[in-house]
């Protein structure tokens, strides 16, 4: 099967301006592939380089070396983003727009015809349960509602690949469960989901495969059950071992 998302030998360096030309290596020679229909968990402690990798996938940050492809198109081309949905971590949306206007704006960029856009907007707003407040400006929304707006906009174009950066961070338990349900529903529709997280519990329940990143380097990758078998413990302990944290020490 052909991978839907392919990262090859990716290196990302940030120039930190404090000390002249000093560079910070955020991602180091990362290679991975995600196949259609998979739910792929991208794990790592804070600062591991998860967001940086996603930034490359979406063209926000140039790769220092290596390359990334989505649907076999280099991520530098805007057209690579036609069939993906992206939920950034910690985002705000145009506060002066209503949820409906925001979604219509994004639908227009995807060139979704008006009638279909209306249908999609109804659909995703129902899915994220914002139907009742769709005509209120986003600035009046709570944090959880804003996160759900983010999910709605990621789904507006009915994407085949979803890239979600810590979709459950900052949500209460009910909110997390709902996000998990949405992810599972997407899987049942045959979508591919690539999402980052450091919440291992949720990863275990929804992911087909995971990759564990630490300090920019890939430390482990495979099916959750394979990893548990390999390290002879549950995913959480395996994770801690992989990132070099010994509970006894």
């Amino acid at each position: 099967m052909k991978p839907i998302l392919k990262i090859q030998d990716l290196v990302v360096e940030y120039r930190t301006h404090e000390f002249g030309q000093k560079v910070k290596l955020a991602v180091n020679r990362l290679s991975l592939e995600v196949f259609p229909g998979e739910i792929f968990g991208f794990l790592g402690p804070n600062g591991a380089g998860k967001t940086t990798t996603m930034n490359v996938l979406l063209g926000f940050v140039p790769a220092s070396r290596g390359a990334a492809y989505i649907f076999n198109v280099n991520v530098r081309e805007p057209i690579a983003r036609q069939r993906i949905g992206y939920l950034p971590e910690l985002t705000y949306y145009y506060k002066f727009l209503t949820a409906e206007e925001l979604l219509r704006f994004y639908a227009r960029i995807f060139r979704i015809p008006a009638a279909e856009a209306d249908r999609r907007i109804d659909e995703v707003l129902k899915l994220v349960e914002l139907d009742a407040v769709r005509k209120r400006p986003i600035k009046t929304y709570s944090k959880g509602m804003q996160q759900r707006v983010g999910l709605a906009q990621a789904l507006i174009n009915n994407p085949d690949l979803l890239i979600l950066d810590e979709p459950t961070s900052g949500l209460d338990p009910i909110g997390r469960m709902k996000v998990r349900q949405i992810i599972q529903r997407l899987k049942s529709q045959g979508k591919t989901v690539f999402f980052s997280s450091h919440e291992l519990g949720e990863v275990e329940t929804v992911c087909d495969r995971v990759a564990i990143l630490h300090q920019g380097e890939l430390r482990a990758m495979g099916r959750v059950s394979d990893l548990e078998e390999k390290y002879k413990c549950n995913l959480e302990q395996a994770f801690l071992k992989v990132v070099g944290y010994e509970p006894g020490l």
Partner: peptide, 14 residues
């Protein structure tokens, strides 16, 4: 600053 540029540029837009 509001990070609205991320969801925007994640769309097929140059």
């Amino acid at each position: 600053e509001n990070r609205t540029i991320f969801p925007l540029l994640a769309k097929p837009i140059s």
